[in-house]
Design a binder for these strands. Structure first.
Length: 421
RNA sequence: GGUGAGGUGGAUGAGUGGCUGAAAUCAAUAGUUUGCUAAACUGUCGUACUGGUAAAACGGUACCGAGGGUUCGAAUCCCUCCCUCACCGCCA
């Protein structure tokens, strides 16, 4: 949610920025400013009214104390009109506040100045491409066939138990999952992130705070009785750790492993084969709450963190700076990381690292004290480090040989085996 | 799930209708004293909205779990909801 004060001070600049995100309803900016004007005027009237009531109440009390009951009674009568007015002001104020909020939650974050123009994923900017694309042996297979060959995971079994997109990992496939999770967590902890295990369901307030609501309501699973949302990413519970807090020290750095649940309503076709797109998957997330002056520096640092992981896994990857049209609602700047899947001959997204500036912290009221002891909104960032399924897919595909799949050296201590098959 | 107790500022905790945005203690913080540590003393020490200012200062309003209500006046009385704790029941 954008800050109303920021919109007030830079309405034109905000509109220009939003245009980069292909946001069409720029009229909302003017509407919200007008409502804000109304709101403040009403606020002032209400405050003045209440101030008068407070004065009278004090006087009445004083008169009663002095035994001047008749004077007190007549004084009382003066408040009737004031109370009536204040009731109306309160209604007007609440209405204006609701309307402002309704509009604000529909306005996406303003993109950073480096965000390229564009509407589709094809227009994302390739920042760099790293690593050799391997030449596979004759008869190399995509990961879903390798999974069958070595009995690593079973999607049909998942269908019986739950439904499509809920894989059952088995044997070395299961161990590989556990190894990757530990590998990622250890690296994050070493980089100074505090490891947490958050709830895997969140309440409405938490889902709203990070921007999943109302934007992505249809993408989340909801429990029937409590109305809890199954988390689509650990970002949601982890960032909410600092909701409504005034932090004494920045940065705050958290990492968490969690399963992620996504309905992926509307997706279909070849993109969803194997582990390319599933409803439940594992991910290690990194989150930072930082000083506004530092957030872009930290974004680069987090991107570097992801890169190192990919290098250690010996996977060819590329880094994309998302264009305005492909960015998420809440982000100001996003780097996507894609690994090359040699058997499918395509790039697969495995991580997304974003700076949200104050977009989340404004909703969540995450503040810190600046040099002048004034409270200010912090910047929040998060990134996947990393999401497992497509990492697994590319590990299997890129490292396959005629007589088995090689485990990268950095991972062997975690898997306990050097080769699958 | 049942019964009982309770939710006050960073923490402990006082406050049962006006003198309470809230005592006291601790923590924190600035300073004085001190050879160091420790201690002592003095000051500061909630948040939000709003007016004001170049920025402060300063002023107004709201907030004592949340939302309603009674009253000239509510932390204090009433209603609803949420949560915490204790004991019992069930249980990994």
């Amino acid at each position: 949610m954008l800050e109303i004060a920021a919109i007030r001070n830079n309405a034109e600049a905000v509109k220009q920025r939003l245009a980069v995100k292909n946001f069409k309803e720029l009229n909302l900016i003017d509407e919200v400013l007008q409502l804000d004007e109304q709101r403040r005027a009403t606020q002032t009237k209400l405050d003045e009214n209440l101030a008068k009531q407070n004065v009278i109440a004090k006087e009445v009390g004083e008169l009663f104390k002095q035994g001047k009951n008749e004077d007190a009674e007549s004084k009382k009568a003066e408040t009737a009109k004031l109370k009536e007015d204040s009731k109306q002001f309160e209604i007007d104020l609440a209405k204006a506040e609701d309307e402002i909020k309704d509009i604000l939650v529909r306005i996406p974050n303003t993109p950073h100045s480096s965000v390229p123009l564009g509407k589709t994923p094809e227009e994302n900017e390739v920042v760099k491409t790293v690593g050799e694309i391997p030449t596979l042996h004759e008869g190399a297979q995509p990961h879903w066939d390798l999974a069958k060959k070595y009995d690593l995971f079973d999607l049909e079994l998942g269908v019986k138990i739950t439904g499509a997109g809920f894989p059952v990992y088995k044997k070395q496939g299961a161990k590989l999952q556990r190894a990757l999770i530990s590998f990622f967590l250890d690296h994050a902890v070493e980089a100074g992130y505090m490891e947490v295990i958050p709830p895997h369901m969140v309440n409405e307030a938490s889902a709203f705070a990070t921007g999943q609501l109302p934007d992505k309501e249809g993408q989340m699973y909801v429990t029937k009785e409590e109305g809890f949302y199954l988390i689509p990413t650990a970002e949601v519970p982890v960032t909410n750790i600092v909701r409504d807090e005034i932090l004494d020290t920045l940065p705050a750095k958290f990492t968490a492993y969690s399963p992620c649940f996504r309905r992926e309503a509307g997706s279909y076709g070849k993109d969803v084969r194997g582990l390319n797109r599933v409803h439940q998957f594992d991910k290690v997330e990194i989150v930072q709450i930082v000083h506004p002056d530092k957030s872009y520096e930290v974004l680069e640092e987090m991107a570097k963190h992801v890169e190192v992981l990919l290098q250690k896994l010996e996977l060819p990857y590329r880094v994309l700076r998302l264009c305005g049209g492909d960015m998420s609602f809440a982000s100001a700047l996003t780097y996507d990381f894609e690994v090359y899947s040699a058997a499918q001959k395509r790039w697969l997204e495995v991580s997304s690292v974003s700076n949200f500036e104050t977009f989340q912290s404004n909703r969540m009221k995450v503040r810190f004290r600046d040099e002048n002891k004034k409270t200010r909104l912090a910047h929040t960032l998060n990134g996947s480090a990393l999401a497992l399924p497509r990492i697994v897919a590319s590990l299997l595909e890129n490292h396959q040989t005629a007589d088995g799949i090689n485990i990268p050296a950095a991972l062997q201590a975690y898997t306990g085996f050097k080769k699958i098959g």
